[in-house]
Nucleic acid binder design. Structure first.
Length: 316
DNA sequence: GCCCAGGGTCCCC
DNA sequence: GGGGACCATGGG
């Protein structure tokens, strides 16, 4: 694992973990879009205003190199949500299928991203796929973001920087019909008509309504922004994969509008519904149509799949 | 070529 | 409030 060939002054960081973490999975599972997998199993990205290479060594150590600036340990820990007690969250969700998914993908953590970048990334995401979203987001950074001094990486563009882009130029970057949405959102924020930060402190429903007033922001994009960018852990984003998982595994195959799936799921999974959403998303997208099976004999889990605890949307 | 994607909007009933 | 057409574009 030879590094040190980076063209910037290198700052090294290292951290011992108290809880489980699957760094590669958490960075690549489709919640953040700027982490680029490297041949040596590390990832390069931008965090805390600096370029960074990060990798995991064994189950309990995370290492990184950053530059030109130093990346404080607190920033890394905050981003990786190492303060989340996964076992406690799993118990709080209290659902055997989600429990099984936690066992299948140990150490998958939500990330604590920035509201603005999260919002724009998910406006870009609509009717697209993870690979293409990553490419488009990277293009935005390369064209409008501030260079970080390493000669390679750019920061994600600020609202002011993105508001300088013309709708036409955005279209040329593969944004298609989403171009005017990005343009309008960037201008609304750059002009001080909309503020994202206060939405962290708002009640979930109020913040959600505020986001959905923005063009190109519906329930799903709002929920992703709330969950990944604003710390509203009860948000339950419903995309195609999550909709499939809920319909097939919980609703007996009965189709349902996505807003009803979201509402039912928030009620069913509770205060940490967002974690349930991410595990179901990954299980259905990667694991396939088969419902995650409980690994036998786990203590503390919610009771085994007794075949009929399938409480539907109107179930008791 | 084909189906699909971390959907939203608008129009219609 | 619910169902459909339409929206651009690239991944696999």
């Amino acid at each position: 694992m030879v590094r040190g060939s980076l063209p910037w002054p290198i700052h090294r960081g290292r951290m011992r973990l108290d809880g489980p973490l699957d760094l590669a999975l958490s960075l690549s599972c489709g919640q953040a879009f700027r982490w680029c997998a490297r041949p040596d199993s590390g990832f390069r990205g931008v965090l805390g205003g600096t370029a960074v290479d990060v990798w995991q060594r064994g189950p309990r150590e995370v290492h990184w190199e950053s530059g030109p600036r130093e990346l404080p340990k607190e920033t890394m820990a905050d981003y990786l949500r190492l303060d989340d007690d996964l076992d406690a969250i799993r118990r709080d969700i209290g659902d055997w299928r989600v429990d099984a998914a936690f066992s299948l993908y140990p150490g998958l953590r939500l990330l604590r991203q920035e509201p603005w970048e999260t919002l724009i990334s998910y406006v870009v995401s609509q009717m697209s796929n993870v690979a293409r979203i990553s490419r488009t987001v990277e293009t935005l950074a390369a064209n409008f973001g501030t260079q970080l001094g390493d000669g390679v990486s750019n920061a994600f563009p600020t609202p002011a920087q993105l508001s300088q882009a013309s709708v036409g130029s955005l279209r040329l970057m593969g944004l298609g019909y989403r171009a005017p949405h990005l343009f309008e959102i960037a201008n609304a924020i750059a002009d001080g008509q909309v503020f994202l930060e206060p939405m962290r402190e708002m009640p979930f429903g109020e913040a959600r309504r505020c986001l959905m007033e923005l063009p190109g922001v519906g329930p799903k994009v709002a929920d992703c922004t709330l969950l990944f960018g604003m710390g509203h852990m009860e948000a339950f984003p419903v995309d195609r994969w999550v909709a499939r998982a809920v319909v097939e595994w919980y609703l007996g195959g009965e189709q349902m509008p996505q807003e009803r799936i979201a509402r039912w799921s928030r009620e069913h999974f509770g205060a940490h519904a967002g974690y349930a959403s991410q595990y179901l998303f990954h299980a259905r997208r990667v694991g396939g149509a088969a419902c995650p099976a409980p690994v036998g004999g786990e203590e503390g889990g919610t009771h085994a799949p007794a075949a009929q605890d399938d409480t539907g949307p109107d179930g008791a």
